[in-house]
Design a protein around this nucleic acid. Structure first.
Lengths: 93, 93
DNA sequence: TAAAATGGTTTAAATAATAAACCAATTTAT
DNA sequence: ATAAATTGGTTTATTATTTAAACCATTTTA
């Protein structure tokens, strides 16, 4: 009935990030910060966790002279997100 | 877009409890523990939080000679749960 | 060239979740 | 009758998470 909810996804900010990435397939750090209305510090930490879990990949480069952090969801991330949503439905319906 | 998720409900165990109570309107401690597969300690703590938030009411009595803790969802709890679910949908759809 | 802004990361403090220990009473077994 | 186990919980303590605050390097603006 109540299957455990992946704790990596059961976090407001990480879930919002995954939700954005699943639609976009690629997004910049600043875009994610604006859309999620999070602080940079918090976002940085949560992106790290998602990357370490293999749910997203992070690429660092430069946009002009400025550092640029780009995030993509992985296939593993998509799977995890979908499984999370399926599980969650049992809690809210 | 991503409205904040009520932190009191964005917790696996508390959400499971609310999910059960919204259907049943009344449930015993032991029933909740079995259905949620939680430990008594964890459940006790989380029920306290829900009660303090005004989302459930807790009544202590006796069933025969044994202590009996009965939980009910409040109208405030129903509202909060429904609002939480509406918000959550923006994250998972 | 000093001040402010950009694009972040790291560290540290506050909060939350979980498990472990405990308690009082009751039931079961000896 | 009494010891051991079970029931129905609560309290306390450990661990993990979240969040904010401080920081860093560079770049742009005044």
């Amino acid at each position: 009935m109540f299957k455990p909810l992946d704790p990596l996804l059961h976090s407001q900010l990480r879930l919002a990030v995954m939700s954005l990435l699943i639609g976009l397939e690629e997004a910049e750090f600043t875009f994610l910060r604006e859309k999620t209305e999070s602080t940079a510090g918090n976002l940085s930490v949560q992106l790290d966790k998602l990357e370490k879990a293999g749910y997203i990949s992070i690429e660092k480069s430069f946009k002009g002279k400025r550092p640029l952090t780009t995030c993509k969801i992985t296939t593993e991330g998509v799977k995890a997100f979908e499984a999370y949503v399926e599980n969650l439905k049992n809690y809210i319906s």
